[in-house]
Simulated scan of single mutants.
Amino acid sequence: MPIRLPRSLPAYDVLSREGVMVMGRSAADHQDIRPLRIGILNLMPKKIQTENQFARLMGATPLQIELTLIRMSEHQARNTAADHMTEFYRTFQEVKDQKFDGLIITGAPIEHLDFEDVTYWNELSEIMDWTQTNVHSTFGVCWGGMAMINHFHGVRKHVLDEKLFGLYRHMNFDPQSPYLRGFSDEMSMPVSRWTEMRKDEIEAAGLPILLHSNEVGPALVEDPEHRAIYVFNHFEYDSDTLAQEYRRDLESNQVQGAEIQLPVNYFPSDDPTKAPPNTWRSHAHLLYGNWISEIYLTTPYNVDEIGLKTTDLRTNTDDVTE
């Protein structure tokens, strides 16, 4: 099944050209099926690029997905045209009375700030609490995942002396996890951050670590109590996203006073003139496909029951959570 997108959204044409199954609203309404309602709270400055990345992964699953793009109510995007934001995005205040099968909270380039110093932290805290009543499963990505694990468990992020930047090997800590179905024992994942979450502090909070790197630390964490998973790195990145960041940093000529380094293990022979091969794409599709599958297997058919009752079709049992 395809992902359901407005035909005028740039991602519609981009994904169609790539062979990803997309469907307009009219055609989707004629299918006798309830699509999964997935929201993306997009905190990234390059909104359209981020839309394409996540829509591409969700469009590869066999389920129909209705995508809702969400923005913070007071924060104004500076890097995306105002008419794009007006046409395709809804503020949190506009959707807060709705229910969603899934929500992705993206990263944001503000990791140098303490959480409480982020201008929209109060509203984001409200959103994270709102997920417990209005969202069946939440996926926090990079800074979004760090914000969620801090909000719900008090786990801190730690500022690093040097940027973690490149393609790093990760180990599969829990092959039996439904989120890692089909995963290899080891895989590569793009990393781009100035902060880290520490393994001992996550384990002290009682949260299972699913993917981990000896070089860059925990990467994927499950939070069963809050029906959430947190990934601190970027499976969703395109092949050239790290290259774009590297060239941006070169042009700015200064990144927090540090010398600009090549992304490690990324360019062939460390030659930035050569196109980097994408070695993480299959695992990216697996992770997001597994997340969508888990939502499908456990979300109530009646969306009004989200946050009140969880029906697990794998065991054919009902768990009332109200």
Rank of each mutant, 00 (worst) to 15 (best):
S188M: 15
D174S: 12
F183D: 12
M187A: 13
D174P: 02
S184D: 15
M189R: 12
S192Y: 07
F183P: 13
Y168N: 01
P175A: 10
R193L: 07
F165V: 01
N172E: 05
S184W: 07
M189K: 10
Y179N: 07
S192F: 08
R181W: 11
R181A: 15
T195C: 08
L167Y: 07
E186W: 04
R181Q: 14
Q176F: 04
G182P: 08
F173T: 05
L160A: 00
M189P: 03
S188C: 12
N172Q: 07
M187F: 15
M171C: 06
Y179D: 08
M171W: 06
F183A: 15
L167P: 07
S177I: 01
P175I: 01
N172K: 04
R181T: 14
M187W: 15
S188T: 14
E162T: 03
N172V: 02
E162W: 00
S192R: 04
S192G: 05
G182M: 10
S184C: 14
M171I: 03
F173P: 00
V191W: 02
Y179W: 13
S177C: 09
D161Q: 08
V191N: 01
H170I: 03
E196R: 12
R193G: 03
G166S: 04
E162D: 06
S184P: 04
P190M: 15
T195K: 03
F183W: 14
P175W: 01
P178N: 09
M189T: 15
D161T: 08
V191M: 06
E186I: 05
V191F: 04
R169F: 00
R193K: 09
D185K: 12
W194Q: 09
D161K: 11
M171H: 08
L160T: 00
E186G: 04
S184T: 13
H170P: 02
S192C: 14
F173Q: 11
R181F: 11
T195W: 12
H170E: 05
Y179T: 11
D185E: 13
L180P: 11
M187C: 15
E186K: 11
S184A: 15
W194A: 02
G182Q: 11
P178K: 09
W194Y: 10
D185I: 00
F165H: 07
D174C: 11
D185H: 12
H170M: 06
S184V: 01
M187K: 08
F173C: 10
R193A: 03
S188A: 13
L180C: 13
F165T: 00
D185C: 02
T195N: 06
